[in-house]
Amino acid sequence: MTEYKLVVVGAGGVGKSALTIQLIQNHFVDEYDPTIEDSYRKQVVIDGETCLLDILDTAGQEEYSAMRDQYMRTGEGFLCVFAINNTKSFEDIHHYREQIKRVKDSEDVPMVLVGNKCDLPSRTVDTKQAQDLARSYGIPFIETSAKTRQGVDDAFYTLVREIRKHKEKMSKDGKKKKKKSKTKCVIM
């Protein structure tokens, strides 16, 4: 069974824990209790493949930012979460993405942009803004509501699919490099 290491990042209060708990335990946590770091595991079937999701729910508070490099190193894919009623959390996505790329030393890291709290009427981040940002990053965008469960499975499952595509691409690139290195030079 394939294991996928997913990391949920975003500013404090955007609903990272609520999304994760909704996926794992099928219930909505409405009281806000700032996370330092929590880890969850769940076995699911995605596109006919049974897999184990190892999900790291991270601290959004700035005082825990020193811990970010460590979990970013171990993560295979990242859910970059903002709240649709919090423009600052949307603007912060850029910083999370840049930090992930720096730590992973790669421009090509599996990510999904997630606009959470889409059940709320007080939207300050337009869907088109988020779609445009995701398009500019070359990553999928999904709106979710941890409260109603809308888009929750889709967000995590899409990230797994992005990781699969990335692994497939990397193995193809690896095979191309191996083929090239088999060419021999004969000096007579």
Rank of each mutant, 00 (worst) to 15 (best):
C51L: 08
T58C: 14
G13C: 07
G60K: 15
E49K: 11
Y40I: 04
I24Y: 02
T2N: 12
N26Q: 11
T50C: 09
D47G: 09
L56D: 13
I36T: 02
Y40C: 05
T2V: 07
Y40V: 07
L23E: 15
I55D: 01
K16G: 15
L23T: 14
Y64D: 11
D57G: 01
N26K: 12
V45D: 12
C51H: 12
S39Q: 06
L53I: 12
T50H: 10
S39I: 05
Y64N: 10
Y32T: 14
L52C: 12
T35R: 15
I21C: 13
G60Q: 14
V29I: 12
E49Q: 13
G48P: 07
G12R: 05
T20R: 01
Y40R: 02
A11K: 05
L6E: 01
I21W: 15
S17H: 01
A11T: 08
C51G: 07
V29D: 04
I55A: 15
E3R: 08
E63H: 06
Y4W: 07
R41E: 01
E49G: 08
E49C: 06
D33A: 04
E63T: 07
Y4Q: 09
Q43G: 09
D38R: 01
V29L: 11
V7I: 09
A11N: 06
E31H: 06
L56T: 13
T58H: 09
E49H: 09
D57I: 01
Y32R: 02
E62C: 08
S17Y: 01
K16W: 01
A11V: 12
H27T: 11
V7M: 09
G15L: 00
Q25D: 06
G10Q: 00
G15D: 00
T2E: 14
G10F: 00
V14F: 07
P34R: 14
V8W: 01
G48S: 07
D57K: 00
K42P: 02
E62K: 06
T58R: 04
I21S: 12
Q43N: 11
V7P: 01
Y32G: 06
F28A: 05
T50P: 13
T35Y: 15
Y40P: 01
G48D: 09
T58E: 06
Y32F: 14
E49F: 04
D33K: 01
V14Q: 13
Y40K: 03
L6G: 02
D57V: 04
S39P: 03
N26S: 12
L19Y: 14
G13Y: 03
D57E: 02
E3H: 10
V7Q: 05
T20E: 03
L6T: 04
Q22V: 02
L6A: 02
Q43S: 11
D57C: 02
Q22R: 14
L53F: 12
E49M: 06
L53T: 10
T50K: 10
K16V: 15
G13I: 03
D47I: 01
R41F: 01
G10T: 00
P34C: 14
Q22D: 15
S17D: 00
I46E: 10
F28S: 04
H27Q: 14
I55V: 15
C51V: 13
A11E: 14
D30G: 09
A18W: 00
E31S: 13
Y40E: 01
K16A: 15
P34D: 08
G15N: 00
G12V: 03
D54A: 02
G12L: 02
D54H: 08
D54M: 01
V44S: 09
E3T: 10
Y40D: 00
V29Y: 12
E63R: 03
E37T: 04
F28G: 02
S39W: 12
I24T: 10
L53P: 11
V7N: 05
Y4E: 05
D54E: 14
D30E: 09
D33V: 03
I21L: 15
C51Q: 07
V14P: 02
G60D: 15
K42S: 07
